[in-house]
Design a protein around this nucleic acid. Structure first.
Lengths: 352, 352
DNA sequence: GGCGCGGGTGCAGACGATTGCGGAAGACTG
DNA sequence: CAGTCTTCCGCAATCGTCTGCACCCGCGCC
């Protein structure tokens, strides 16, 4: 079942059959009658072009490398699905790779992808300070960033609007009467961690609140254990916080634990807000208030961008920000009376 | 950078270079001296064979199709990672596809995979009653099943030992004093659903307990909403159950909701056991007791099996069962006094 | 010394599709 | 009616690698 068979059945040369089948219709390289004959023959035979042979000749594999830190992070599956679905519509397939946040492993995986002749890359792994996100020699391969953006916006990217998202969270807490709000920040070498910290400072400023040096603790990784460590520290150095904005749901989980350790109830004693609205955070106890954005859409958009670059290599680099929204659940509640809130007068003071 | 360049540098014919590089060393087609010269040249040039050209010639793509219902199901990411890691060790890559449990979509995806000339398939989507798991004409492609097994064990597969796992759960509940135990069963057209129901009956029999017709409700899908529906029904038709064995963690989540609706506390009024020990079920409230098995290992083992079949096509079909273990958390507790348990005498009867 | 044998290489033809080039018609103009 | 242009199609090369076949050469044996 090759092109030659189709050509024979249609009574034309294989070259003509090829042109007939690949014709963007109308551009007169092949007569309409011939196109009809060939496509009819192809249909009758159920002909499917051999992508391997095609790739060899055209040097395009119709394959895109997708590099993420870890598939087991619940944030990524919906993103991957979005990428794959959109790529499939464009006739491409995704090649997945997990780096486990290990730069050495990442380099090795990118090398493998180059060997496989991927046509482009979608990277969810860039860090600030590694200016060549795709490694040396990648300049020819189209690259799109997802979830994280490049420091200088020099690369096309799709990500949530971290700053706005955190501002929503802060505004929500303030509207509940909170004034002493802490931030468990994400790793500052990631655009998300840095952006969300910026969003926190900005949001607080907008509400007329100051951010002191003890109001922020920076996590080294987006992990529950780090969230626990940071929240402990925050509670220690800032005992009267009534709310914590976590840079990420994982960190928020760590905050839950730290509060439980300290014998504080959430949200009665201290509210917590997360970011990402991962699957199942609505099943936690208490269900987590979190900043949501559409993960699947982020994936689709990233795929869209890489498809555009594949189609027209020189096109301008776009950076797309997805609008976040706050999903209010039970982990946030009114500020406890007795906090330093300007909301009400005195009231009962907590015992601690 | 092609084989011809290497050959030129080594002063041999490309054909010889090819043989030298592909030689399983020792089988004397090429002299050792030549092999040394060629490999040296290849290293010096950093030569990497073009997998596309190689595939075209050898008709092997070094690619394995991995078909799952839905990547967003937390069970699968670790499995996928196991598959990908083991495949990578064998020089293969995985091509992922999600069927969303839609047979039509599955057929279409399998067709795409055939077009892409995958060398084998790992399927997590087989249902009982579809004897041709991979569709017609798949007889030539090696297939391995994962998570679910074929009805007649005719296909190699890797899965948890569903029967043993559920028996562990039942034994645990009985040891806590439970006697009236219900089962929210999984879809019976899936081997997991059927196996776990069988395990439930067997486990109950082993404990000398009978399973009446109202003790089991069968879910149509592994979804929280279905779990809710079934648990509601179970509570209605069997009001005095003190424990529910769910065929799956999703269904267990539904049970949580049904209990909450009914004003019952877990585990004080009714214990719940899940299956799979999905990520984050330890963060639920209460943390879920669940039957665990090693998801990553399951993936690795499936990849191992497909690699074996790829290496020696005729090898006997193995079916591997992974040993399950019970992870006891806070969703299971002593049977409430006043149940029909044989454990103690009368005691306080619950008000309902 | 001639012949046979076998290990090691070179030659060239696939694999299946794409594409520059040129040629053969048909259309159209002067 | 001749010449030019357009349209459509066939020819053959090409992508990079593998592999059946033939060849060459050296060695051993009769």
């Amino acid at each position: 079942m090759t092109l030659a068979d189709v050509a024979r059945l249609a009574g034309v040369h294989p070259a003509t059959a090829s042109r007939a089948l690949n014709q963007v219709d109308g551009s007169g390289l092949v007569s309409p009658a011939t196109v009809a004959r060939v496509t009819a023959a192809a249909n009758r035979l159920g002909y499917r072009p051999n992508p391997v042979a095609r790739s060899l000749r055209t040097r395009r594999s119709h394959t895109v490398g997708v590099v993420i830190p870890d598939l087991a992070n619940p944030l990524f599956p919906p993103v991957i699905r979005g990428i794959e679905d959109r790529l499939a519509e464009g006739g491409y397939v995704a090649l997945l790779a997990n780096t486990d946040d290990d730069p050495a492993r990442e380099r090795q995986l990118l090398e493998r992808m180059r060997e496989r002749h991927v046509d482009g890359l979608v990277l969810a792994t860039v860090r600030r300070g590694t200016p060549e996100p795709a490694g040396p020699g990648e300049e020819d391969l189209p690259v799109v960033l997802v979830n994280r953006v490049a420091e200088d916006r020099a690369l096309p990217a799709v990500a949530a609007d971290d700053v706005s998202g955190i501002r929503l969270a802060v505004a929500h807490l303030v509207s509940l009467g909170h004034r002493r709000i802490g931030h468990v920040a994400g790793p500052q070498d990631l655009s998300t961690g840095a952006g969300r910290l910026r969003g926190f400072r900005l949001g607080m400023a907008e509400q007329g609140l100051e951010v002191g040096p003890t109001d922020v603790v920076v996590a080294e990784r987006y992990q529950v254990a780090e969230g626990l460590r940071c929240a402990r520290q925050l509670l220690a150095q800032r005992p009267r916080v009534t709310a914590i904005v976590a840079a990420n749901d994982m960190l928020a989980l760590g905050c839950y634990r730290a509060l439980a350790e300290a014998g504080l109830a959430c949200p009665q004693d201290c509210s917590v807000v997360g970011f990402n609205d991962m699957p199942f955070v609505d099943q936690l106890s208490p269900p987590l208030t979190s900043v949501r954005f559409d993960h699947y859409a982020m994936g689709r958009e990233a795929a869209q961008l890489i498809l555009e670059r594949l189609a027209t290599p020189g096109c301008p680099t776009k950076v797309v920000y997805l609008p976040p929204e706050l999903v209010v659940r039970a982990s946030t509640g009114p500020a406890p009376r007795g906090g330093l809130g300007a909301g009400g007068g005195g009231g009962r003071r907590r015992a601690d």
